[in-house]
Amino acid sequence: MTSMSIRDSQPTPVAISLGHNQAALEVDLTIYAERAVSRASYKFTDRCYLLLSRSEQPGWLKVTFGAKHEKQDLGPLLGEFCNELLDQQIRDDLSIEAGPIRDLIVAQAFAEGNLLDPQRDDGSYEDDALGIGTLR
């Protein structure tokens, strides 16, 4: 088994080992969310076999790649996987930041009234509590 680290703009190296028709990656879960790892893995299930398991190192996840056919070179797949992991991490961060807004958008899309501002539907324009009609 040899170790290599795949360089990328992400400074954290990911430990790798290669074997016959197999390879394994270890992912630091303080950098990547589990969700990101499983989603990245899903995308590769057409090209190879994957197994996720707990690493011996605490706080790390092990991703084992299995070749789907003899002579398959797993190296390039590992590289792509690392890049995919970065993108999935971005997506994970995005879903935490923007996910609640998406839920709100969908809820508002199908709601009858305004969910965000009750003044909107029922507020009196004569009273103009918001002062929209204030003269300059």
Binding site: I101, L104, I105, V106, Q108, A109, F110, N114, L116, D117
Partner: peptide
């Protein structure tokens, strides 16, 4: 502002 969210909601409704 909440308005972008409301516009998105209207557009989403149109898409569905």
């Amino acid at each position: 502002s909440n308005v972008p969210i409301e516009l998105l909601a209207t557009k989403y409704r149109t898409k569905k």
